[in-house]
Amino acid sequence: MSAGSGTGASAPVAEHGGGDVRGARRLRQVRELGILLALALIVAATAVANPGFLSGQSIRDLLLSATLLTILAVGQTLVIVTRSVDLSVGSVLGLAAFATGTLFAAFPGLPVAVAVLAGVALGAVCGAVNGALVAVARVPALVVTLGTLYAFRGVDYWWAAGTQINAADMPASFLGLGRTAVLGVPVPALVALAVVLAAGWYLASYRSGRELYAIGSEPHAARLSGIPVDRRIFAAFVVNGALAGLAGVLYAARFGTLDATVGTGLELQVVAAAVVGGVAIFGGSGTVYGAALGAVLLTTIGSALPVLRVSGFWQQAVVGLLILVAIGMDRILAVRAARRLRGGGPDGT
């Protein structure tokens, strides 16, 4: 067997194989239910230990914290299902956040919408650079985005040159974006929800959305069957970049203090969120809903541990363990699905 094949091997079979689409969907629902269950368990355990965890303020804080990771995880999912990966999102977020702050500092009267669009556009440009290198120059995504991780961050450092944008440099109406709430739900969380629903609907209902999965399952076959593979991959990177830009803008609105180090090291959390959410790292399978749940789960753990007064030192170890459990579970589910498809034959290995 191919050691790398695990999740990738069987999931696409379930998805595009013997017409057992309903089974595949059920499988995915089981998977996502599992994350929800884990989420509920953590929240319940924390709330029992400290009822303050369920206060309105605390839940608002939690939703706000999960916002950025959720948006990034959605974008990353689009890229990962095509069997690519984008490690540069942390740097893109940082760059977009700093650009937004700088715009306000330079043009104090700028309408908020313009700044938001500028941040998103800058992210999309970064995504287009990645996408062009991957789709047109056909360079492995892992290598390209590892390179642009350094490069975009370098541009950010060079641009910032040791300066810092403070909350005072940005208009109150913009900072208000991060603080206002509609029906008790913070605006950024609503934005994230909208992004999740839109991406989920697109992937499920649009032909080009389904094609992303086809590309991820069998790039060769996808190309032969007439899918414009390069164009789709390019588009996935651009959208992911734009979402990273959006996350950067929201970061600026929420945190107010910006320097060149914003978003450093975020990329691995994002990939982790997607993987925990059941997105197969070698493409072809996974949903944005799962990825979003993964992001919320990781954030909840991050907030719950300090409340439970578990030493912060355990936090990273717990996250690592969770990733391993998640991919292990995916593997077991995939093997079982494959066995069912073959009528109880030996498993896929």
Partner: peptide, 21 residues
């Protein structure tokens, strides 16, 4: 039979976390 990329992202967090522990 898990993909090494995902496994080692997991153990990357796990081992670093254990180092802090």
């Amino acid at each position: 039979g898990l993909p090494s990329l995902a496994v080692t992202i997991g153990t990357m967090a796990l081992y670093r976390g254990l180092a802090y522990v």
